[in-house]
């Protein structure tokens, strides 16, 4: 188990390294960072200041090393849009909002999708199963931002039950969380269903029944414990898609989280913040997947070996 964790930890570190290289390359992608970072009518002094601040006159490997050194200390420079904040300061300030929204969205997804997938599998071919499949198709095929707009239109404009956008009260989180969870529910319930179907046919499920175990326990303990590996593995993907989803959802709902920061920073050409957001997104994603791997090992004894 220790060895397994160590290997996964090393893999994660390697991924983080690759990401820093990518983020660094990002600034050099469209020619000189000067064009990406400075406004059109930048003066020569401004350009010179940037060149010396970023060490742009040095060799690329050297530039990368100083970038990496700063990044390791969480220093991506100062935000250009939110004056007076460091780039990482902006990110740290907004991160809790994204975690709050994402957490609620994931909770909704799990609470709805797992039972839905399990029950659809138990009644394969039944009405509930067909309804769930239709729901999945719907959920996975309509664009997230469009669905978000539908929600606003229906609940905020037509019914005037909830606010259209913004944050502050518990009412504000409902629509964005549902919009974010929708797609996940679709994907997660389908995965759970197919995993459960496979497991429910297994001999050990039959053996549990032979032992006189109740059907509820057969499904929710014997079968789900084994089927759970699939949705759990998907959980890592889920974390990623909650993050990318936050970009759309937070923009549509003006939810002041990291995704919103990403878009606003890109709009304002606030490169230091964009870099910080990308790195933090990547870190969250890697940490989530690392945790999923550990959890997998915990649930499935075969992985540990």
């Amino acid at each position: 188990m220790k060895r397994y964790i160590l290997i996964r930890l090393l893999e994660s570190l390697a991924a983080i390294f690759v990401i820093t290289v990518l983020v660094f390359a990002l600034t050099h992608m469209s020619g000189s960072p000067v064009d990406a970072l400075l406004p059109q009518d930048a003066t020569q002094e401004q350009i010179d200041a940037l060149v010396s601040a970023w060490g742009l006159d040095q060799s690329l490997p050297r530039q990368y090393l100083s970038f990496l050194g700063n990044a390791l200390q969480g220093d991506f420079g100062d935000s250009l849009k939110w004056r007076g904040y460091s780039a990482m300061g902006v990110v740290a300030d907004r991160l809790p909002q994204t975690l709050y929204l994402g957490g609620i969205a994931v909770a909704i997804s799990v609470v709805v999708a797992l039972p839905l997938g399990v029950m659809a599998a138990m009644r394969k071919g039944g009405k509930l199963d067909k309804a769930a499949q239709l729901f999945s198709l719907f959920g996975q095929s309509i664009p997230q931002f469009w669905f978000a707009i539908l929600l606003i239109w229906f609940f905020a404009v037509a019914l005037q039950l909830l606010p259209t956008s913004g944050s502050g009260s518990w009412q504000h989180v409902i629509l964005p969380a549902i919009a974010m969870a929708w797609f996940q529910i679709a994907a997660l319930s389908r995965l759970t269903r197919s995993a459960m179907l496979e497991v429910l046919d297994a001999e050990y499920v039959k053996l549990a029944r032979v032992k006189g175990v109740s059907e509820t326990r057969v499904v929710w303990v014997h079968a789900l414990r084994n089927a759970a590996v699939v949705p759990l593995t998907y959980f890592g993907v889920l974390a990623g898609s909650v993050l990318t989803g936050s970009v759309t959802i937070e923009t549509v709902f003006s939810w002041p989280g990291l995704g919103w920061v990403a878009i606003e920073a890109i709009r304002a050409r606030d490169f230091p913040v964009v870099q910080a957001v990308v790195v933090i997104f990547a870190l969250i994603y890697i940490v989530c997947n690392f945790l999923v791997d550990i959890l997998n090992a915990y649930i499935d004894p075969r992985v540990r070996a």
């Binding site: 297994a202 001999e203 050990y204 039959k206 053996l207 549990a208 014997h222 414990r225 084994n226 649930i299 499935d300 004894p301 075969r302």
Partner: peptide, 9 residues
């Protein structure tokens, strides 16, 4: 089948 009739978890 003893390979599959015990719950692996």
């Amino acid at each position: 089948d003893p390979q599959t009739s015990l719950n692996p978890s």
